[in-house]
Amino acid sequence: MKPNDVILHSVTKVAVVIILTFSIYLFYGGHHNPGGGFIGGLSVASGLVLLYLAFDIETVRNNIPVDFKIVAAVGVLIAVLTGVSSLFIGKPFLNQAFGYFDLPIFGKTELATAVLFDVGVALAVIGTAVTIILSISEDG
């Protein structure tokens, strides 16, 4: 018998967009407000888990052809490289800098190098969380 999950599919298609937008907001709020790479990555992972719950592994893997183990490895690599790169200019490990620039649309904007480190943290968290949940669910 074919399961009837029209409501679940329809709600998921709307809710995943909201969750991913909110996680981008959380990611960029990480400098002066609650948020940052870790919690942004976790909310992206919860949106992906909602997709896996509503549909199935085959469908999501066909539409998002990404191996999440490689995502975790690339994230850790980005985080370590941005930490090490400050050693080459004679500053301590994980040193950061920020400045104010005039961008065309946004006006005066604060740009910080800590965002690059946060991208690495977010990718590592997404890859690790999704890999753990998929490998737990596989032996069922």
Binding site: K2, D56, I57, E58, I133, L134, S137, G140
Partner: peptide, 8 residues
């Protein structure tokens, strides 16, 4: 099951 492999 929590996450299905293929759509039943």
């Amino acid at each position: 099951v929590v996450i299905e492999h293929k759509h039943s």
